[in-house]
Write a protein that binds this DNA or RNA. Sequence first.
DNA 1: GGACCTCGTTGACATTTATCAACACAAATC
DNA 2: GATTTGTGTTGATAAATGTCAACGAGGTCC
Lengths: 252, 252
Amino acid sequence: MHANVKQNVIPLITPGLKVACSQCNLRELCLPFGLSEVDMGRLDKLIGGGRKLKRGHFLYRAGDPFESIFAVRSGFFKTDVLTEDGRDQVTGFQMAGEILGMDGISTETHTCNAVALEDSEVCLIPFTELEMLSSEIHSLQHHLHKVMSREIVRDHGVMMLLGTMRAEERLAAFLLNLSQRFSARGYSPAEFHLRMTREEIGSYLGLKLETVSRAFSRFQDEGLISVQQKHIRIVDIPRLKTLLTPPDGRIG
Amino acid sequence: MHANVKQNVIPLITPGLKVACSQCNLRELCLPFGLSEVDMGRLDKLIGGGRKLKRGHFLYRAGDPFESIFAVRSGFFKTDVLTEDGRDQVTGFQMAGEILGMDGISTETHTCNAVALEDSEVCLIPFTELEMLSSEIHSLQHHLHKVMSREIVRDHGVMMLLGTMRAEERLAAFLLNLSQRFSARGYSPAEFHLRMTREEIGSYLGLKLETVSRAFSRFQDEGLISVQQKHIRIVDIPRLKTLLTPPDGRIG
DNA sequence: GGACCTCGTTGACATTTATCAACACAAATC
DNA sequence: GATTTGTGTTGATAAATGTCAACGAGGTCC
């Protein structure tokens, strides 16, 4: 019943997978943002190659020693934290251009699991080398700080969601967030495939899977979206957005 | 009814407040952790002085341009995020040695408010200068990354709390977290003064103030703690900890 | 020293979400 | 093609938390 049913071996670096930031169409979303051609070449040399992961495989697990951060080249990941007493919280879903693994810097050990939700590719960025290079390239250093800060801000958004929103508001916010991120990557903002189960959505949103399912059905009944298993089509984005704004505005 | 009733002017740098990391008894908790004497002296020169804040005053507000991060020298802060539609989420409470303001790096604008919950003092650390110095001092750079990463890990803990815990578990986790942090600063882990209201605790924990109040009363009835308004004495720390571990362990 | 305030507590009741259970659907496997 | 397994949906009911309201305690301002 738990996610760790598929305890696959962590695959080694895929030798054939050549990566180069300068050739990558994600460079405007990813770590090399704002670098000159020359500096991007220096970053290329540092990137420890790519790694392919089959669906269900772990990129890293809580407890693994921290050595690298990862940039998602393609595919889809989830990160989750498990406690000894069996609580399980999905802390995020990551797609192309997003950075994984920064939780590990503080203790030199990963504190969460990262699992591929579909066949995926990542770039491996050795962190010590990245720090060395970033002390020479100011814009790289600054952008790394921005990426970490962005993660903090994103986390605050999740706290807001978990702390103040009701079930349907959470799901609306979740769908709109996915929509916006797909859109930023050139995909349809209105129609997409969910890579995660209702249970994983529920864990992320602090809800049980039944509540997630009911909220989907309700949205469909009201003509906001069309759901067929994992295929989602958002019929009325503006009206979905209004679900996030309580009618009275709650001002005062 | 809202926190921004006290909209005080942001005070300027307090000229008389001399700060020096090398003299500070918080240096093992704070940014200069692990620096040599010489390097600490260089960090001292960078610190833009101290700032005193009266209770209720804002250290910064959402929308303010980002220029510095802040280290709490003394006192107690809360940070919160407000949305246009009136939602208000407390994202953290900060005490001596903790760093504030890293949310602002990503957009060059602060994304939350930081308010002093009692008369407080902070060190102002201009961020551009900090980046310049950290590219020269590797251990400073690395420690900055650790501090940011620690914030990400802390945020994950809050997500876990908000996503998986029930009201009493949240409050127990909150009290134990405060206890541990006071303890790390040489104060009693068992007896302390809450600087925040029930409403602020509730906002942080995703609960209404009445629920927080009832949970306090219940803990007192069960002999776990003793509450008198904001004064808390934890009578039975081990038993409070067991509240966080569901009896069956939820394994499997 | 009294008259506000804000803050905290408690009770009765409403609402939301979880729990338990049954069943439907789809993909993967034999 | 049938079977299994994971996944998703829906209903009935229970449990947790929120809402509304009253009141009490402490601090602050005249």
